[in-house]
Each structure stands twice: as structure tokens, then as C-alpha cells.
């Protein structure tokens, strides 16, 4: 049989609960204020995550990208980005999204016999031309990367 009784509202928090809640509130609000400010210290200005700078996708113009690998036998082979990774990753690379460019270069280094990976982004705006180079060391950890305008 159905019960129509109205349940009491939840009890008001006691002093101990309030102190705990207060500490959580302070930490949570502080985190929310600091997270967007991290943008000011970001190396990659196109990385606008967690900043509330815009609610729409970035309308930044894509750059023209070319990439190639240098193999141990001296052969230089072009990489067709579109046939290697999903188009959305290609878009990130063409917009010079640093984390994705770095990961892409690292990924190419995983192939056997690759000595060096190069990627160049030619942009028709203030970003100019950026070159990325990754030397694939034997242990995959000692790498050199340069980014130039």
C-alpha cells in the first residue's frame, strides 16, 4: 500500500561536518579559480582547455603540414598524415597543437629503423612556419626537439 507521508528534510550539518565541508569548499573553489589561470603559463596558446575562453570550437586557420622520416639506411620517406591518423588528430597537428605534434613525432619514432622525424607547419598568419624535429634515440628517451619560427 502506498505511503503518502512527507519525509523530513535532511538534518542541518553539525560543527564538525561544517568544518569538513568548509575545507572541501575552499579547495574546490580555489581549484576552479586557478585552473583557467593556468592558461597564462601555457607554452601552447592554442590550448584553451579548462579556461572558459570560448564555448565554441576554435576557428583558428589550419596550417599546411608536411612530415617525413629519415631512416637508418639514409632513405627519406614522406608521411601522409591523413592515412595514418584520424582527421581530427590531423586538424590538431595542422593547428599546431603542441601536445599532439609531440605525440605524433614520438609515434613515428616507434617504427623500426627510423632515425629522425621532421614536421613542418606553414601558416599564412602570425604563427609563421614552425619546424619540429625529433631524433629517435636507441633507448627512445634521449631525444632532441626544436621548434622554430
Amino acid at each position: 500500500m502506498a505511503s503518502f507521508a512527507t519525509e523530513p528534510p535532511p538534518a542541518s550539518p553539525n560543527a564538525k561536518s561544517r568544518r569538513r565541508a568548509g575545507a572541501f569548499i575552499a579547495a574546490f573553489v580555489l581549484f576552479q579559480f586557478l585552473a583557467p589561470l593556468s592558461y597564462l603559463g601555457r607554452e601552447d596558446a592554442s590550448d584553451e582547455r579548462f579556461t572558459w575562453r570560448r564555448f565554441t570550437r576554435s576557428d583558428e586557420v589550419a596550417c599546411e603540414t608536411s612530415a617525413w622520416v629519415e631512416r637508418a639506411d639514409g632513405e627519406r620517406r614522406d608521411i601522409a598524415l591523413e592515412s595514418t591518423i584520424h582527421q581530427q588528430w590531423v586538424d590538431y597537428v595542422q593547428r599546431d597543437r603542441r601536445a599532439v605534434v609531440d605525440a605524433f613525432l614520438q609515434k613515428q619514432c616507434e617504427a623500426p629503423g627510423v632515425l629522425r622525424v621532421e614536421l613542418v607547419n606553414h601558416c599564412d598568419d602570425a604563427r609563421g612556419t614552425r619546424e619540429y624535429s625529433l631524433r629517435c634515440a636507441e633507448d627512445r628517451s634521449a631525444t632532441i626537439r626544436t621548434a622554430t619560427r
Binding site: T6, E7, P8, P9, P10, S12, P13, I25
Partner: peptide
């Protein structure tokens, strides 16, 4: 507060009130 419908809405017409700091957050 993990409220049931009965604790959030009374039949008397008077809206139940209570402390809910997470809602303020």
C-alpha cells in the same frame, strides 16, 4: 542531499527548506 520526492515536496503547499552547501557550491 540525496532527497526523495517526499522530502523535497510537501503536500501542504509549503516548500520544504534545508541546508544544502553542495547546491551553493
Amino acid at each position: 542531499p540525496m532527497l526523495s520526492a517526499r522530502s523535497a515536496f510537501s503536500r501542504s503547499g509549503e516548500a520544504p527548506r534545508g541546508s544544502a552547501w553542495a547546491y551553493v557550491l
